[in-house]
Design a protein around this nucleic acid. Structure first.
Length: 614
DNA sequence: GGGTCAGCTCCAA
DNA sequence: TTCCATTGGAGCTGACCC
């Protein structure tokens, strides 16, 4: 791997290089457990030969070019740093190192457990004839995992099946069966629960356990707990796993990879031991440092090990954002999570489907219907309502685009999702696609969250505030003046109606919005008969009329607010009202322009995402 | 001019 | 012939608001 990295940095023109595959970087040419002794150059060559000329390859080259540009930019920035700058950044870095060092906690013992080639092992368990044969779980398109026999050939997870076939012609493919994996995963979790009831499952086959307490209670070491736990997992499932025991989660994760498969590694709770361990640890072993970050750190700063991160900390502070620099420094110090991770609530929910590239719009619409149905069902299952919908597209050339819109209300019905998703898609047509995805985010935290905003301008808040008494005078005296401009009136009314429409029952919004409306009705109609604001009498059976009347007062309230602001700012009301509607459906604040940067090649260069801007 | 939000892209697991 | 699916998060820009 080191050899190929050196080669890549020295060969700038791919095609003229004698070994072009050496500069073709993929995630699956990186070292992984069970791949020692693999002819890496052969793997890289095969991967390159099989990929060369494909749309995927072209896209990878584009990304590579962006990355090189980014590296060049960062090198320039680095070269332009003056001695005084460096000296100042060194002070910043030293301060941050001292602060982070002060947070070091060596009192906890963490265990990271990782099942060995989990999916493949489960499949072998249910079909013992696979034992000893090279096998991969997945398909010709993509492999989820490969057993250790297959890894000897360079076959691994995240590799396309057709390339794996070339590397290992006798490779057996087994389709994925998540039901089976979930069943075995549950068995392992029952074991974990005995050691730490609050363990964190990182995936079906990985978990973090705080074993401090169990070590004390049983009077045994972390290593002994690890041995016992792995034994119990084997007894419960017939599957082997590996473990890492360390003072924090970050290190425990690194440690569990060291003696894979069916082994474990213990890093003592001792600062000197940690620093020794970290000093020679390649940065790529750290969770959070992937292919791109590794490349940048190596090519710009010549950082290869975690120790280098500390030594180059001043440059990292100079060129990276505060949070990125802090992360790198904490890695250099061997710090990681020691507190129990807080329970994280779901931030988004999505689904996406890949298909053969096509321009068929009817097909896109069909896919959108399916995705909206699936998303809606998933959301309903979890009782979620979201207000930001993101459409994800992957074009035939593997370019990924996302388009999002934020609505005024929370939705979850497939009908609503489809309605907005279709609009987003329409703006992108014509286009040749190979993937469509939908993601919903910005959930209402609780069922009532969508009505909880105290600053939201609703009739309920309006009445509760008591302002209506004061303003009802205006209603009687100056109402007609306020609505002299008919166009303005229609626009104001439109806004109020749309506000209600966004939360109407048909959009399957939560019952809380209905509840609020009912509350408003109760508050508005004295003795269920007379309008509290203007005294108009309407019997309860006149539902529509009452609704219109509510809208009328709400519009009036908005109008008056707008008018007072208009006077203050001396800006024509009409213009502001129109710009507010201009953005169309659910523009949140309604005044943002749609960006189409990627289409024109104007999208933000990759280096914008890491490099600190002046 | 600073704070905030929406939109977007990318990275990582 | 063929390069997945899902989630979370960082960090940037542009627009708006105060």
């Amino acid at each position: 791997m080191a050899k190929t990295e050196e080669a890549s940095s020295s060969s700038s023109i791919v095609d003229s290089a004698p070994r072009p595959w050496e500069s073709y970087h993929t995630v699956y040419t990186n070292a992984k457990a069970g791949m020692d002794g693999v002819d890496k150059e052969k793997v890289q060559r095969v991967v390159y030969e099989m990929s060369k000329g494909s749309k995927y390859f072209e896209n990878e080259e584009r990304k590579e070019a962006y990355m090189k540009q980014k590296i060049e930019n960062m090198r320039d920035q680095l070269a332009n740093l003056k001695t005084t700058d460096i000296s100042n950044y060194q002070k910043v870095a030293d301060k941050r190192i001292a602060e982070l060092e002060a947070t070091r906690d060596l009192s906890r013992i963490w265990l990271h457990v990782d099942m060995d080639a989990f999916y493949a092992a489960v499949e072998t368990l249910s079909n013992p004839s696979l034992k000893g044969k090279p096998m991969a779980v997945g398909s010709m398109s993509m492999i989820s995992t490969a057993n250790y026999e297959a890894r000897k050939f360079g076959v691994r997870a995240a590799m396309p099946g057709f390339i794996a076939c070339k590397l290992c012609p006798d490779l057996i493919f087994v389709p994925t069966d998540f039901k089976k994996y979930t069943y075995y995963s549950d068995l392992t979790r029952k074991v974990y629960h005995e050691y730490d009831p609050n363990f964190t499952a990182a995936s079906l086959d990985e978990a973090y356990l705080d074993i401090t307490k169990v070590c004390k209670e049983k009077g045994i070491t972390g290593g002994e707990v690890g041995e016992e736990l792995r034994e119990n997992v084997y007894k419960a499932t017939g599957l082997t796993c590996s473990a890492g025991i360390a003072p924090n989660r970050l290190l425990a994760k690194v440690c569990s990879d060291i003696n894979k498969p069916n082994g474990q590694f213990v890093l003592p709770n001792d600062r000197a031991a940690i620093m020794t361990f970290i000093s020679s640890l390649p940065i790529r072993k750290i969770g959070g440092i992937g292919k791109v970050t590794e490349h940048i750190l190596k090519d710009v700063f010549e950082i290869k090990t975690c120790e280098d991160l500390l030594q180059k900390s001043s440059f990292l502070c100079a060129l990276f954002s505060h949070s990125s620099a802090e992360f790198f420094i904490s890695v250099g110090l061997g710090l990681g999570g020691t507190d129990p991770p807080s329970v994280r609530s779901r931030k988004s929910i999505s689904n996406e489907r890949t298909f053969s590239a096509t321009k068929n719009e009817a097909f896109f619409n069909q896919k959108l219907v399916e995705l909206a149905d699936m998303l809606s069902a998933d959301m309903e299952k979890e009782g979620l309502h979201g207000r930001t919908l993101t459409l994800k597209l992957k074009t035939a050339s593997f370019e990924v685009r996302t388009r999002a819109l934020s609505l005024q209300s929370y939705i979850c019905s497939s009908k609503d999702i489809l309605k907005h998703a279709s609009k987003l898609l329409k703006a992108e047509l014509p286009v040749s696609l190979r993937l469509i995805g939908l993601r919903m985010s910005h959930f209402n935290e609780e069922k009532s969250a969508n009505v909880s905003d105290p600053t939201q301008r609703t009739i309920l808040n309006f009445i509760k505030s008591g302002d209506f008494n004061k303003e009802s005078v205006d209603v009687n005296n100056g109402l007609h003046d306020a609505y002299n401009d008919e166009e303005t009136l229609s626009q104001v009314t439109e806004i109020s109606c749309s506000d209600y429409n966004e939360t109407e029952p048909s959009s399957s919004s939560s019952s809380s919005s209905n509840h609020e409306k009912n509350q408003e009705q109760e508050l508005m109609w004295v003795d269920d008969y007379k309008c509290l604001i203007c005294g108009l009498e309407l019997p309860p059976s006149f539902l529509e009329e009452r609704q219109e009347h509510s809208d009328f007062h709400f519009a009036q309230k908005l109008q008056q607010e707008e008018k007072s602001r208009q006077i203050y700012r001396n800006i024509p009301l009409k213009h502001r009202m129109m710009s507010g509607k201009d953005g169309g459906v659910g523009q949140g604040k309604g005044k943002k322009k749609q960006k189409h940067s990627v289409k024109n090649g104007n999208h933000i260069p990759i280096d914008a995402f890491f490099t600190k801007r002046s």
